[in-house]
Amino acid sequence: MSDTMVARWLSETPCAQGLGAKNFAKLASCGWIEHFQPGAFLAREGQHASTFFLIHAGSVALELHDAATGTALTETLGVGDAIGVSWLIPPHRYHVDVRALEPTDMLVFDGDRLKKLMDEDPDFGFAITRRLLARVYSRLEELRVQRLDLYQPAEGRQP
């Protein structure tokens, strides 16, 4: 897939908004396009994490498997969402399984190359880190609400 296509898809993601031409080009230079069929795994728990993904089309499930209780689907992510920060944070291992739920088009980024560019250019490194942090924070907020199990009736809430 051409670099032009990578740049076009990247320009459509919220993650790339306001990045500036120089930083945008650096990020695009680390990316390529991949297609995943429904049921295909993008990442497996425990596997070395050397890439991160931006969803261009389709959706994926984040899953945790337990031999006793089976597979729990913890979250789904869709168009524009970023998947994975493990490539940036030691020990660089995926903490969940990531499975495509439908035909899914991804921008995939080489985490090792990206880290190198971020180390060499702190301005670029900060711009990328700030975007990832915003996404991580937003996901943390959502998970805070999710873990409250809000839809269970509270004790004594109604007669």
Binding site: A61, G70, L101
Partner: peptide, 23 residues
Amino acid sequence: VTVDSAGPDWFGHVGVVTTLVKL
């Protein structure tokens, strides 16, 4: 429609309802 948790037989969205607003 979204649910807070599901098994692998669910093909819909998983996450809090507020995540749907941005879609």
